[in-house]
Design a protein around this nucleic acid. Sequence first.
DNA 1: TTAGGGTTAG
Length: 737
Amino acid sequence: MDSSYENVIKNLLRNPSSIKTKSQAKQLHAQIVKTRGSRSVSLATIILRIYSDLNLLKESLQVFNTFCYVPTKAFKSVIKCYSCNGYFLDSLACFVEMRGFGKLPGQDVFPAVIRACTHLKELRFGESVHGCVVRFGMESDLYTGNALMNMYAKLQVSSHDCHVFDKIPQSNRFSSQRSNLVSVLYEETRNELIRSEKNHFDTLSGRRVEKGTRLDSVSKIFQMMPNKDVVSWNTVIGGNVQSGLYEEALDMLREMSNANLKPDCFTLSSILPVFARHVDVTKGKEIHGYAIRHGFDKDEFIASSLIDMYATCTRVEDSYRVFDLLPQKDDVSWNTIIAGCVQNGAFDEGLRFFRQMLAANVKPVEVTFSAILPACAHLTTLHLGKQLHAYITRMRFDQNMYIASSLVDMYAKCGKIMTARWIFDRMEVHDSVSWTVIIMGYALNGHAREAIILFENMERERIKPNAVAYLAILTACSHAGLVDEGWNYFTSMSKCGVSPDIEHYAAIADLLGRAGRLSEAYKFITDMPIKPTGGIWATLLSACRVHKNVDLAEKVAKEMTTTDPGNMGPYLLLSNMYSAAGRWKDASKLRTNMKKKGMRKPPACSWIEVRNKVHGFVSGDTSHPYYEQIHEALRDLYERLKQEGYVPEMSEALHDVDEEQKGDLLYTHSERLAIAFGIISTPAGTTIRITKNLRVCVDCHTAIKFISKILGREIIVRDNSRFHHFKDGNCSCGDYW
DNA sequence: TTAGGGTTAG
């Protein structure tokens, strides 16, 4: 080899950071092995450092495993390389091994070790490492300080300490072969290390890190740091935000500016959730403006924070705009826009984004499913829900609490309560949400007793019912007419520290009204400590309709038109009641009034899924390609119903017209069109599932009961308030809705 | 060494 070439090699070895690529590193390594053999420990250490700096774990380990005696520098390189590649457990095991040899760690290794502790949620181990930092006088190192603050800020957020061998996170991607070895090594030395390092820490610093005071630890470290950079500030701000200390986070942001440090991408994406939670779109927009001026708005992190902020502030149109302008979209950007749509009730849009995400070859993750499933639940798109469920099972996401709860809710809302229960029973752990969805599922499907049993089981499992859980059980009681039970739950709420809000009052008003205790319900509403809403009056009005009390209905409708003048619900219900009582003049007067006020009844619409396709029907709609067959089926059905004793109930017909015309109006209702289509396009005996945007009318309700009997089919109708399971001539709602 | 997204609501 000529001397100039030899010089190049020497220079490279003296200045290893000049190696920038994997192939350069491998060439140098090969050259050294070729010319000088592989015995030189110092050369191998330099090569290892080069591989480690380039994050080449496989190559680093190949060199590392050749050492008989491992130099400190080699340990440091491998610890860092493991940590940077996400092999946190191996990183810690290597650190333990290094300490076992009595080698002194330097400030260059601590950030990687602390980062590993943070990812593994190993607070106790992290504290012992902190002890080690203090012991070796490295507290003033900027990177170590930042890493420590990050660790305390993160682990302080989780409510309980989770140790690595209690539950190894899935994200820890070490090989299973190696894991046993590492686990044994780690287990053997871990406790010993924690003991020795922590003793040093406690005696040297005179401080003890107690549970629950870890954000104080962050502040203390921050205050004691001689040098602080943007990362230090970002870490403290982010820690405050994650702990819900929004005002403190904003104060820190101001202080940061006073310290002449400019917010960067990290600062902005940490602070944006503050405005989302405060629903302060004006301040959020200011941040958006700042991001645009500094060219940060194309950053995926900032963009997803902005999308989320606008969606949380119900400005979903602005979310779309940010999303559309984003040149590179990652899975989080997609998940954020999908969740934003679904949370704002834009279910179809959410599904559209979900399909686009798949078309863009972005792989859905757990969050994607818990974001999209509620859309299937609300739209009752069972076929899509089932497809998603199959994918979730294949991906082994089914034990994820968010996903499992969403699946239970989706099946319950699609009327498949047994499937919902099956999933619920197979969940390893239940939280208050999963209990609530199954209880609400039974409530909506008319199984109050089962809901009560589950509510008691939840309390037995020491899961404290929250406001939503109480709402679920009150709904169950009200749907089943269990007045005493409902009242008991209502009165026990406050004792359990959950103050009833308007929905709970509404459930009780519904409960009383349903039981026919109308004046009691009226008094309950007027006496409540919260101002009654239009919705709560509507509940009572509905009860007046069922119990045919026109006088109280007029009184209630009057209350409603004062509290909620734009709502046409009371007009419609009252007008139907006038018609039912034969008071045609009053009914027509009311309708004229509505017209004068520019009120129009929204079109009634029902939909049914047949062979994975959703078919929608609007009242009186003749546009469906199978309309002729549908109409014929309806005619046949009408004849058979009449033979069975069905008499059309004309009381709710909208006009004062002759009986024959009313008959026409009635059998063109959207739910009947959908049911008729279901009958002609599915095999005999199959359950028919219909979803309707408005309340089912009395006549349709009666007719569907007959249909379920004569065809021997179960018909499940989800209207805008509840489920109706029609079977053998009966309905689960007990004729109250 | 720092940042973003998820479940229940008659």
